[in-house]
Design a binder for these strands. Structure first.
Lengths: 139, 139
DNA sequence: GTGGACCCTGTAGTAACTACAGGTTCAAGG
DNA sequence: CCTTGAACCTGTAGTTACTACAGGGTCCAC
């Protein structure tokens, strides 16, 4: 109950939405431009007004992005969630494919790390003009 | 003679350089534009001519990129190597910093993988309209 | 001398934001 | 009611490291 404004505020401006979700203002507007967030209603003066549904959707987007889904993936996940007609299987398929991507990335990075570590270990870091790291990179 | 130039020739056209180094033609021209590769001499007709030094430099760039160095890093490494005045310590410092970056990336990806795996395991992938993955993403 | 492989420049597109510039609106204090 | 300053607006351009054309020109083997 400490966040009365957070749980009961009916409508908020973009700055508040930004702070609550941890998504920057520019990014929110960007999401709107590319169709990931809907066009919100506006005040008479033209400023955006957000409600609970916007909060939920933006949180979904942020969580998905944090887990490494691309915006195209997020779009797909959202339309599955929106549709009501989605099958759990499709969602799982995307997730499993994404896990595969991530594992490939990890494998790539570990390969890099291994080579770099080896290179660095050959180099004592002295003031000499003959560097085993540069030599390795040249070969 | 053309085939000989392909394997041991003194000067080559961009296509040959590309094939020997595994760097695409467009990328080579891009490297030139941003100053990572020098402006090569040209034929009368204006086509680029490359020699051994270009080959070496481009190989260096490719190896560095494969190890995940940014182009800015590559630029720095090249200028250290070019200078002759470099110290081994500077090179090692960059390498160690880069290893740190890579480890952070691996840690991030592993965190993602763990959460995704957990999400996926809660989902039997059936045809039901109630997906634990989407639920997790919303929270 | 010609055909086709190769090369040229310049521009625009990609992902996912981020950073302004230059202007408008809102709400609170006086 | 009026002012002020924070917050908001649109639109554009920059970031990384390429990649993909379009619409031409060059090279050289036959």
């Amino acid at each position: 109950m400490q966040d009365i404004t957070a749980s009961t505020g009916r409508t908020v401006a973009i700055g508040v939405l930004s702070k609550r979700t941890g998504v920057k203002i520019e990014t929110i507007r960007y999401y709107e431009r590319i169709g990931i967030m809907p066009n919100p209603p506006r005040t008479e003066g033209g400023q955006r007004i957000y409600g609970e549904t916007h909060m939920k959707r933006l949180t979904f987007v942020r969580r998905s992005r944090e887990l490494g889904f691309s915006l195209d993936d997020v779009r797909a996940l959202l339309s599955l969630a929106d549709g009501g007609e989605f099958t759990c299987g499709e969602v799982k398929e995307m997730t499993v494919a994404h896990i595969g991507d991530i594992r490939r990335k990890i494998a790539d990075l570990r390969r890099m790390e291994r080579v770099l570590k080896e290179m660095a270990s050959k180099c004592d870091g002295g003031d000499v003009p003959d560097c085993p790291i540069l030599e390795t990179l040249s070969s």
